[in-house]
């Protein structure tokens, strides 16, 4: 993340750091420069800028990630129904193609900006920044960013949001966190979506899903939720309320929220 303070130095690479190692000459006479910058530093700088933008307007930004079809848009529809008299909400939708999801959100009377990524499998901080140019943050309390349905690539990109919400639908198997550790390690909250199907599915054990998440040294809360029946929805909505309040209160005393995975990365490289 940082080019100068040495926070990229880990026990794995510190032997490479030498006091005078900035510019050296190799045996073949080539110039060698030791760098140690993150390959995503450009994205990370844009993400920091985006987060400052959200913070300036006291808007909580949430990045929703999951497999395709795990019910992200349905969750947003249910959350908007529950919260729209309380909070002002906008949604940034990421999909490879179509405006379908944005249309569903707009039908609820909420601003939705669709980012169509074409062939790109994830959103990045620059795409979100472009979308922010089409949103007036001033009156807003929450911006949901619905990432491209994909449990691999979106995990690598900080968008400038505050929390990663990862949905695991109960139709997918409770060992998903073990199969996609990079993604689930990044979760600040894990929602077990379509929980009304638990009885029908039979072999999805929420306890196992939580166990696999803990094996990633992740202490994130786990909430089973059904957008269809409303089961568990109030727990998720209460979590949201708390975070909106905590974020606003924190800003008054200069406290900033960043996703836990970015905090971890700051200290380990």
């Amino acid at each position: 993340m940082c080019d100068t303070c040495g926070c990229n130095i880990t026990p794995g690479n510190k032997h490479l750091i030498q006091a005078n190692g900035k510019l050296a000459t190799t045996e073949s006479g080539a110039a060698a420069v030791d760098v140690l910058t993150n390959l995503l530093s450009e994205n990370d700088h844009q993400a920091i800028h985006n987060r400052e933008h959200f913070d300036k307007h006291q808007v909580l930004a949430l990045n929703l990630m999951s497999s395709p079809g795990s019910g992200k848009t349905a969750l947003l529809e249910a959350s908007i129904d529950a919260l729209q008299h309380e909070f002002n909400i906008a949604v940034i939708e990421g999909d490879l193609e179509t405006e379908n999801d944005a249309k569903r959100i707009r039908a609820k009377g909420v601003t939705a900006i669709q980012i169509t990524t074409g062939s790109a499998c994830h959103l990045d901080a620059h795409m979100v920044h472009d979308a922010l140019h089409h949103i007036n943050l001033e009156p807003l309390d929450i911006v949901f960013i619905e990432n491209v349905g994909n449990l691999v690539c979106p995990a690598s990109f900080d968008l400038g949001h505050h929390y990663n919400i990862i949905l695991l639908s109960v139709t997918e198997g409770d060992d998903k966190p073990a199969k996609y550790p990079v993604m689930f390690r990044a979760a600040d909250l894990m929602l077990l979506s379509k929980s009304d199907l638990l009885q029908v599915i039979g072999d999805f054990d929420p306890g196992n899903a939580e166990h696999h998440l803990r094996q990633l040294a992740n202490a994130a809360p786990v909430i089973p939720v059904s957008s269809r029946t409303g089961d568990g929805l109030s727990v998720w909505i209460d979590w949201l309320r708390r975070q909106v309040k905590q974020h606003k209160r924190g800003l008054l005393i200069g406290e900033r929220i960043i996703p836990n995975i970015q905090l971890l990365r700051n200290t380990t490289g």
Binding site: T10, N13, V35, N38, L40, A178, Q215, L264, R265, G269
Partner: peptide
């Protein structure tokens, strides 16, 4: 996918290394 302590087995660990994505050196 198993970031637990190898000594006592507790899952509450912090990562010391393994998430690097760094440009280390350029020779030109």
């Amino acid at each position: 996918n198993r970031l637990v302590c190898g000594l006592c087995g507790d899952w509450q660990t912090e990562l010391l290394a393994g998430d690097e994505l760094l440009l280390e050196r350029v020779e030109m």
